[in-house]
Simulated assay, not measured.
Amino acid sequence: MKQLSARFPIWLCDVWGVAHDGRKPIPHAVDALIQHRRAGGKVVFITNAPTPKLNVQAFIDKIGVPREAYDDMVTSGDVTRELMVELGDHGLYHLGPPEDLPIFKGLEVKRVPLEQAGAVLCTGFIDEVARAGMKIDHALLEQFLSRGLTMICANPDKVVSIGGVLIPCAGAIAEVYGQMGGRVMMAGKPFAPIYDVALKHAGHPDHIKVLAIGDGPDTDVKGAMQNNLPCVFVSGGINKGADPEAEVRARYPDARIMKVMPELYWT
């Protein structure tokens, strides 16, 4: 990464799966981020966490990711809030766990029962039991569909790794709703809004100076490709295939993958 640091001073770096594993920091990755910043580079964390930036900062502070590793952060939750305001005139039905409710804080948008809702906000599975069994309530999705409700998906990730265990996320629910014919609006990676905000936080740099880093083929690699950015693919974490590099290159042949490594490291 040392050579890429000199070539690309702005790094848009995924958080979960790159800087930490859900329970503790990933030491080599944190060191690489710190070294990049010491060399004059800038790191903007870009995460599909369906919650405001301050909540994510509090979480990574708690598990030990140092503030020295990054300059700023953009979350899917923050971008989601803009969509909530746009679609929330008649209130939103929340599909997700109670811990995601801070996403409503400070907004005039109301959380309402389904029969009153003008749209649906999906932040994930409603509880640990549903999430562990990936129990998608198809009957509930049919109700959304029958009323023609748009779903705002606060986290396009389909899975996340927690200590090496794959856990399904909101993106898995949104995918099913879309397959059923429902309209879905995505705030996070790989879609443009979160990249636009991240580049704004980075000072509107020229794209030739920006490198995207992440472990999600369908979020980080696809997002970099769709937003005309080169990327580093971190092949550990959620990628359990026999040959993650071959699989991601086959899936996204037009992606400008500069480097593939199991963990982010400096040398």
Rank of each mutant, 00 (worst) to 15 (best):
residue 82 E to W: 09
residue 30 V to S: 02
residue 113 P to S: 12
residue 190 P to H: 06
residue 22 G to M: 13
residue 70 Y to H: 07
residue 232 V to K: 00
residue 59 F to H: 14
residue 132 A to Y: 11
residue 110 K to E: 15
residue 157 D to E: 12
residue 159 V to Q: 09
residue 125 F to P: 00
residue 82 E to Q: 14
residue 123 T to D: 06
residue 147 R to E: 09
residue 213 I to N: 03
residue 60 I to Q: 04
residue 259 K to H: 12
residue 248 V to T: 07
residue 155 N to P: 09
residue 54 L to K: 13
residue 130 A to L: 08
residue 148 G to R: 13
residue 20 H to N: 12
residue 160 V to S: 06
residue 146 S to I: 06
residue 95 L to K: 05
residue 125 F to G: 00
residue 251 R to D: 00
residue 214 G to F: 04
residue 5 S to Q: 08
residue 27 P to K: 03
residue 42 K to H: 08
residue 49 A to Y: 09
residue 24 K to V: 13
residue 5 S to L: 12
residue 47 T to M: 10
residue 112 V to K: 05
residue 139 A to S: 13
residue 53 K to V: 06
residue 171 G to E: 07
residue 93 Y to I: 11
residue 21 D to N: 15
residue 218 D to V: 00
residue 7 R to I: 06
residue 265 Y to L: 03
residue 142 E to Q: 15
residue 194 I to M: 14
residue 173 I to A: 08
residue 233 F to P: 00
residue 105 K to H: 15
residue 66 P to M: 06
residue 182 G to I: 03
residue 140 L to V: 08
residue 180 M to H: 08
residue 106 G to F: 13
residue 44 V to E: 04
residue 65 V to E: 01
residue 128 E to K: 13
residue 97 P to I: 02
residue 125 F to R: 00
residue 96 G to E: 01
residue 257 I to R: 06
residue 28 H to I: 01
residue 139 A to P: 04
residue 190 P to E: 10
residue 130 A to R: 07
residue 63 I to P: 02
residue 192 A to D: 07
residue 80 T to D: 05
residue 159 V to S: 02
residue 59 F to L: 10
residue 172 A to T: 05
residue 252 Y to P: 00
residue 259 K to G: 01
residue 67 R to T: 11
residue 93 Y to D: 05
residue 148 G to K: 11
residue 171 G to V: 06
residue 28 H to N: 14
residue 112 V to D: 03
residue 51 T to V: 13
residue 214 G to V: 04
residue 92 L to I: 04
residue 138 H to Q: 11
residue 189 K to Q: 10
residue 168 P to A: 10
residue 23 R to Q: 12
residue 45 F to T: 07
residue 214 G to T: 01
residue 138 H to M: 14
residue 20 H to V: 10
residue 26 I to C: 03
residue 3 Q to V: 02
residue 8 F to L: 04
residue 248 V to M: 09
residue 132 A to L: 11
residue 186 M to G: 03
residue 197 V to S: 07
residue 43 V to K: 04
residue 230 P to F: 11
residue 236 G to A: 06
residue 29 A to W: 01
residue 128 E to V: 07
residue 46 I to K: 02
residue 16 W to D: 11
residue 189 K to L: 11
residue 45 F to I: 15
residue 3 Q to C: 10
residue 164 G to L: 01
residue 237 G to N: 12
residue 68 E to I: 07
